[in-house]
């Protein structure tokens, strides 16, 4: 069975592009266009990995991440921030709140694929020996 990735990004073109790369290398992608539907999609689809934008219309990626961590059933899903935000503080805020990785837009396809699969490996490893 294919591993599931949830892409939360309000820019449809970027979300679909990200989905295209991931689908092409064996993932099954689900897209959500804002934080609220992203959280709903996470609960419904139980993805193995979440790729998360920061700037979104309803609430930002940090808030999304916080709410995800509060939900015991979803808290363990590794989150990769994928953002055009270049504030140095964004990276440190993301990493200190427990993000699996932080990628900047524009990204290289290989970078994305490597990051997502290593996040999955990490999560599986820590899942085996808690």
């Amino acid at each position: 069975m294919r591993n599931k990735v949830l892409i939360v990004d309000d820019d449809r073109a970027i979300a679909e592009l990200t989905a295209m790369w991931l689908n092409n290398s064996g993932w099954e992608s689900v897209i959500a266009g804002d934080g609220g539907s992203g959280l709903a999609a996470a609960a419904r689809h139980r993805p193995e990995v979440i790729v998360l934008d920061i700037r979104m219309p309803d609430f930002d990626g940090f808030e999304f991440h916080r709410r995800l961590k509060e939900n015991r059933e979803l808290a363990a899903i590794p989150v990769i921030f994928l953002t055009a935000n270049v504030h140095e503080s964004a990276r440190s805020q993301a990493m200190s709140s427990g993000a699996a990785a932080f990628l900047r837009k524009p990204y290289l396809p290989d970078q994305l694929l490597q990051t997502v699969s290593s996040a999955l490996r990490q999560a599986q490893k820590s899942g085996e020996c808690p």
């Binding site: 073109a13 970027i14 592009l17 790369w21 055009a84 900047r104 837009k105 524009p106 990204y107």
Partner: peptide, 10 residues
């Protein structure tokens, strides 16, 4: 960066 991501990516 946002449009660059789209152009470069597609």
């Amino acid at each position: 960066r946002t449009p660059l991501t789209v152009i470069q990516g597609y």
